[in-house]
Design a binder for these strands. Structure first.
Length: 445
RNA sequence: GGUCCCGUAGCCAAGUGGCUAAGGCAAUGGACUGCAACUCCGUGAUCACCGGUUCAAAUCCGGUCGGGACCUCCA
């Protein structure tokens, strides 16, 4: 298994800390709004990472947090004349709904900042004791110059960053790059701490959670490319205060989704929300996996539509193969191996092993579709169809794609037979009527 | 101002030194079909431009043009 590690900027062979186990953490959403289609990319991609490791036989411990204490949540609460907790709950629920609709699992550990307050405060306190942080007027800042390789992840040097004109001037900070660990506040939700009432900065939660849940270094830490700096850099810095390692062995970052060559982002206002996408979102899922995860994805109605069409085709071929077997009552026979299918399977897995190259993996899915469509036309191709269905199931499980199809009822089967008879007898009026019914039931394409 | 990425057919996209540059969508020709749908077979590329390295470059190096990201909340 090869993974591109952002930390070293190289493709590396995956070597787990604990045998047959993958411990992975992905930065989750700040729950103050519905997620847009760009936000869905890591939700889908890292779900596929999890699925593929499971296919390879690993036990995957997947954790993704909710940031439910944040200025934006407070602003939103004031706007809606309610409290932060209500806002957070509302958008956590909405998030889970969207995650499910795009076909990703919601069954993973999802720690919340509000439930981790004491761990976060303890962590900050230790940083102060070790001189990696300092308190000023109720605020606490991290001292970046104390970490010798600060900037290792994002490839930045403190000197370069300092020259950036856009760094805010905050006289309380010893160095403009020092980041907030604790923020003294008077407005909105606040918590007691040794430094006074306030709320935590954004960067400590992930480190505190990872230490608490995994007890130390993890295998994979993932998130969007925009989190690399400063968020992930600062996580590493906080961790480096106590440990020699970089929190995770492999850092993975997904590229952004672009609209008209520009990043889709809430602050740009060019967003389409996941909740507003219609119907079956498997086509959308296929779309996000159609481009290698590190590259930017271009998004437009036209592009999305081409993937939606493709998904319709895949669904059709799978369904047709299934019903062909069902009609012949050969769904339950033993599997026979087909060299052509074994090649497709190997190439698919090979593509996935190569840094989760879902784009190439999907090419194999298309090969399989073609193979199956040919087999459907042959009346004696039942062994091939069964093997094809089996391979479809494997690939769909790994990619998180799903087709709903059930065995035909007696009633439907009778209609099907009647349709075949009508065609034989050239009773086309009756045949067309039956065809329509069967199409409505999803049995005929 | 600093750091970094990208530019492959109408659209999307794989490929990062070596056979005729994958694949999909769209378009188009054919086959199949009672009609249609579906499906299958076929058809398309001076790899942004200029120069260099090499026996060999889409791929490496330099430059030009164009687009983008990060340095501020962001997946």
């Amino acid at each position: 298994m090869k993974i591109y590690n952002t930390l070293n900027k190289t493709l590396e062979t995956f070597d787990p800390i604990h045998e047959n186990t993958v411990n992975m953490y992905v930065c989750g959403p700040t729950v103050y709004n519905y997620i847009h289609v760009g936000n869905a990319r890591p939700v889908i991609f890292f779900d596929v990472v999890r699925r593929f490791f499971e296919y390879l036989g690993f036990t995957v411990n997947f954790v993704s947090n909710f940031t439910d204490v944040d200025d934006k949540i407070i602003t939103k609460a004031i706007e809606d004349e309610t409290d932060e907790r209500t806002i957070a709950e509302k958008f956590i629920e909405a998030f889970y709904r969207d995650v499910e609709r795009v076909g990703s699992s919601t069954k993973y550990l999802a720690p919340r900042v509000t439930k981790y307050m004491s761990a976060i405060i303890d962590y900050i306190d230790q940083l102060i004791q070790e001189d990696f942080a300092y308190a000023v007027d109720g605020d606490v800042y991290f001292r970046v110059t104390k970490v010798d390789d600060y900037g290792v992840l994002s490839g930045r040097k403190i000197k370069d960053l300092e020259s950036g004109a856009r760094v805010e001037v905050n006289k309380k900070k010893e160095n403009p790059l020092d980041f907030t660990l604790w923020k003294s506040t008077t407005e909105g939700i606040k918590y007691p701490s040794p430094w006074g009432e306030g709320r935590p900065g954004w960067h400590t939660e992930c480190v505190a959670m990872i230490h608490d849940i995994f007890g130390g270094k993890i295998d994979i830490h993932g998130g969007g490319a925009d989190l690399m700096f400063p968020h992930h850099e600062n996580e590493i810095a906080q961790n480096r205060a106590f440990h020699q390692h970089h929190l995770a062995n492999y850092w993975m970052h997904n590229g952004h989704l672009h609209v008209n060559e520009q990043k889709m982002s809430k602050s740009e206002g060019n967003v389409d929300l996941v909740k507003d996408l219609d119907g079956d979102l498997m086509g959308f899922r296929l779309f996000t996996l159609g481009t290698h995860y590190r590259a930017p994805i271009s998004y437009s109605d036209e592009i999305l539509e081409s993937y939606v069409n493709e998904w319709e085709k895949l669904k059709r071929v799978y369904t047709q193969a299934f019903y062909a077997l069902d009609l012949a009552e050969r769904l339950d026979e033993d599997l026979v191996k087909f060299t052509a299918l074994e090649t497709i399977r190997e190439d698919f897995v090979q593509a996935m092993r190569d840094d989760f190259n879902t784009a190439n993996a999907i090419t194999e899915l298309r090969e399989l579709a073609k193979f199956t469509n040919r087999a459907i036309r042959k009346t004696d191709g039942y062994d091939a169809l069964r093997a094809a269905i089996d391979l479809f199931n494997t690939m769909f499980t790994i990619l998180g794609l799903k087709v709903d199809v059930k065995r035909m009822s007696k009633d439907t089967r009778a209609l099907y037979m009647a349709w075949t008879d009508a065609r034989k007898n050239k009773d086309f009026e009756k045949a067309d009527r039956l065809r329509e019914t069967l199409q409505n039931r999803g049995v005929l394409a």
